[in-house]
């Protein structure tokens, strides 16, 4: 702490950010909380119902199913994307002319709008004309993501991996590029194996950047909406209906604003809890290590 500083006018620089956050996040969130305790008939006709919508939502089997699917999906893509992203980052050449080309190639999936990603995979996985669908069918494997829940899940997970592994890879590559070469030279002199170099030289220096990567992926995967909506529409049945899609059908399709608001608050709290748990555990292991 700097002593003797009496001029705090620098805090005024924070005011625009505070105002933007207030109007873009805090005020809408407060409005949603207000809606969540009322039955909304129209703008002027509302009935206070207390916490009834929360109770109803928490006991709704469709909500619980969507929540389980959401957590399963997020855990699956994280378990695959993080190691795969690190592996790709390690495999990339560091100081070659090809490095830039590889980085641009990796960035391409991240630049594609989400609904376009869904459309690309909708065509790509079609068993009649899609490259993936036709190729799998040529192997004698029955594959139809519109009729089979398992196939729909496989397609969704493949799509998410294709779309987002690049983010982990690019961030991990940035972290790897910042490791000074003497660290590698010292490990080589000690006769460290590839695994030991990764475990004791690279991984500790990647923790901060991986924390950011995984946090972004946790939040994004928990909020996924557009891609599955375009690809499967939540089907077959409800097998790929995640929380966001169920929420949208409730709020926009059925115009149940009160229950949808309660759902939104629960959804928000779930994401906050998971992100906080994850961030805390990573920070704790970093402090211990």
């Amino acid at each position: 702490m700097i002593k003797g500083v009496s001029n705090n006018r620098a805090w005024l620089a924070v005011v625009p950010v505070v105002l933007v956050v207030a109007f873009s996040a805090v005020v809408p969130l407060m409005t949603v909380v207000n809606y969540s305790v009322q039955d909304i008939f129209d703008v002027d006709t509302r009935l206070f119902v207390g916490l009834d919508w929360y109770r109803e939502t928490l006991r709704d089997p469709r909500f619980i199913d969507a929540l389980l699917r959401q957590v399963t999906f997020s855990a699956t893509v994280l378990v695959i994307e993080v190691p795969l992203g690190i592996w790709i980052a390690r495999a990339l050449p560091r100081d070659s002319r090809a490095t830039s080309a590889f980085l641009i190639l990796l960035a391409i999936p991240l630049l594609i709008p989400w609904n376009v990603v869904g459309t690309i995979w909708q065509i790509f996985a079609r068993p009649d004309i899609g490259l993936l669908g036709v190729s799998v069918a040529a192997l004698g494997i029955s594959f139809n993501y519109t009729g089979s829940s398992v196939d729909a899940w496989i397609t969704l997970i493949l799509m998410d991996i294709w779309h987002w592994t690049s983010l982990v890879a690019l961030l991990a590559f940035a972290g790897l590029a910042s490791i000074p070469s003497p660290c590698y030279q010292a490990a080589m002199l000690d006769g460290a194996s590839t695994w030991q170099v990764f475990r004791y030289v690279e991984l500790p220096r990647l923790k901060s950047v991986l924390t950011i990567a995984v946090l972004l992926r946790v939040m994004d995967s928990l909020m996924i909406y557009t891609e599955p909506f375009v690809l499967t529409g939540g089907g077959p049945g409800n097998s790929t209906t995640f929380l966001s899609q169920y929420l949208t059908s409730m709020a926009v399709g059925q115009f149940d604003l009160g229950p949808a608001a309660a759902f939104s608050v629960l959804y928000f709290l779930l994401i906050v809890l998971l992100c906080w748990l994850f961030y805390t555990s990573v920070m704790r292991s970093e402090a211990d290590g």
């Binding site: 407060m30 409005t31 909380v33 809606y35 305790v37 509302r46 206070f48």
Partner: peptide, 13 residues
């Protein structure tokens, strides 16, 4: 009024 305030939520916030 567009924020649809109620007394309990106002007290909460």
């Amino acid at each position: 009024s567009w924020m649809a305030w109620t007394w309990p939520t106002a007290a909460f916030f």
